[in-house]
Design a protein around this nucleic acid. Structure first.
Lengths: 347, 347
DNA sequence: TTGAAAGCGTTACCAA
DNA sequence: TTGGTAACGCTTTCAA
């Protein structure tokens, strides 16, 4: 039935049946050269006003649009940026992706999305990235040092989001997990919590490990050792299971979670499954500060990542490197904001 | 410092300084024609085994990869699919996007992501879609009938996700809001709820309106009219505000929400802000059934959309239309599954 | 099986 | 300001 419509299409019939109009078609009908049509659509193309009008008129009639592939092929710029996200992690990434996508669109850049499942997929993804000649890449997925170096070889600008390269140098923007985590621990210490426990992220998560290490370090400074650590995968279920695991040992009075989702799972486990009053008998803190953290049922004490500023910075850094390939590596670190919720007994 | 690394790069130096290796480079070094290199990387290209090996060896050394732009330009296939999502709506879309992206990647298709903010952006997005010669489009954003017809004109296959075209015909996959909503209402009626109220979505949301209309229709059949309706934007906050608005009138004993997020907001408003016991004094039902709906603090009664089957169907339908442009319009409707949570007093 | 040559639809460069 | 012509890197005939 869709086919039927084609015969009664209202728009002006294309130059050749079914084919998409090209700059040649426009040139021919407007009585100018093809180069002129090209210049007419280019930013600073020199062209007489009357011709420009004529060309634009014809172009509109024919529904002409420059072919992005041909443009990219010849000019070396595709106006596409690849965004790499490891989906299985934190559910706070949708917000990041949304912000990134919005900001890139504002700058007339398209997003080629790669949502990674397993570590092993990275090489395949990078292969596609090279093939498609994107102008740059923003990666919120973990890349190995050799992988990061490939970007240099291929001359593709890269900005890491909440990751850092260990030996290779790369542009990156991140939220300061260390100071955030220390902040949380200090508040808990001030409020005289004694028995700490941690629900960490998976071992292969960069931010997860950073947060675990930072919390443990600050606790050690306060003379607190032998802190029980269980691992989750940033999900609600794993947080809930994590608290159950901790409860089988000596019950802590403060649980530090590597993500809000896990903290929320832990709260539900404590309050609902085990009947432990929060924050009276148990304080729980998270990290990220997005969405559900501030829902009235949880009011999580957490560190809010400044997602808007971070995404803005990531995009700005990338654009800078796309315009000027020699911009040196730089790391922009943003402090998180303490979210004082009711899930922890702090001052 | 990144620059410094370039001198000690381990990979074989490209043919010309800094330039990406082309099929000509490979051909020259392997001592064959360029066409042969092309065929070597094509699916069914006829080529002698020994030459194939030699070419592949050289290609690996040079780090050669076919240029996707050139391929797309000449062959007419880009192996890219555009995914349109209206981000401001439901937070249940990240799950959909993730599934779609995964399934497309499995089929060796790249995702060009367009995350829409305002209705007005659609035309600009479509413009980009045409320019980039994507092989097809999956849209979870609302498209007008004229916009849908453009796909026919441009010969670009389209599959609508949880939307339908009113007059234009298009392929679509959706969750049956009507039967889902009727199901919920019937359970509530059976449990002798009397005073119903609705927290609907925004007027310009297709699914939102469908759900509102379906619920009202079923209530009308039961002789229940004058059902108060307040509108939200699918967000937690709007659900919470919605319940407060309803509470200012005669207190209902059943609130039907157009999304889980709003239902959760409404639950928090009722239990925490107003001290109304749930489900004892008030039943609340949602729609979507993803993520937070099943968190222990809420245990929402809702309709779970079969996201996996729906995304699988959407991708399959799209691929079918990409392979064969004459596949007729088809609509696949999936029934949702009743989620019996503790948020509603039903049998 | 192989290679030469003709595009694909642009931009970039250079004379005019 | 113009238009001709050479790329860009590939796929696709078509003869050999």
């Amino acid at each position: 039935m869709a086919r039927e419509k084609k015969n009664v299409t209202v728009a002006a019939p294309p130059v050749k049946s079914g084919r998409r109009a090209t700059s040649y078609d426009v040139a021919r009908i407007a009585g100018v050269s093809q180069s002129m049509v090209s210049r007419c659509f280019a930013p600073g193309g020199s062209i007489a006003p009357d011709k420009r009008d004529r060309i634009l008129k014809v172009a509109t009639e024919l529904g002409y649009r420059p072919n992005a592939l041909a443009q990219g092929l010849i000019s070396g710029r595709t106006n596409m940026v690849a965004v790499l996200i490891s989906s299985l992690t934190n559910r706070y990434y949708p917000e990041v992706l949304d912000e990134l996508s919005r900001r890139l669109t504002e700058r007339d850049i398209r997003v080629l999305l790669f949502s990674l499942t397993a570590e092993s997929e990275v090489d395949a993804v990078l292969d596609q990235v090279w093939r498609h000649s994107v102008d740059g890449v923003i990666s919120a997925a973990r890349l190995s040092d050799p992988q990061i170096r490939l970007f240099d070889e291929h001359n593709v600008p890269l900005v890491l989001y909440n990751r850092t390269a260990s030996t290779a140098s790369a542009a990156s923007v991140c939220c300061d997990s260390t100071s955030g985590e220390r902040d949380l621990v200090e508040r808990l210490l001030e409020a005289r919590h004694k028995r700490f426990a941690i629900i960490a992220g998976p071992e292969d998560s960069y931010v997860g490990e950073e947060r675990r290490v930072a919390a443990l370090a600050r606790l050690a400074e306060a003379g607190i050792k032998d802190v029980p650590v269980v691992r989750g995968d940033f999900s609600y279920d794993s947080g809930r299971a994590g608290l159950h695991a901790l409860a089988r040992g000596k019950m802590p009075d403060a649980v530090i979670c590597a993500s809000d989702q896990m903290a929320i799972g832990a709260m539900d486990a404590a309050r609902i499954d085990l009947g432990i009053p929060i924050p009276k008998a148990l304080s729980i803190v998270g990290f990220d500060g997005s969405g559900p953290a501030s829902w009235a049922s949880y009011e999580l004490t957490s560190i809010r990542q400044p997602v808007r500023r971070m995404t803005e910075a990531a995009v700005a850094m990338l654009m800078e490197r796309i315009e000027d390939g020699d911009t040196p590596a730089e790391r922009r670190m943003f402090a998180g904001e303490l979210l004082r919720g009711g899930s922890a007994r702090i001052g």
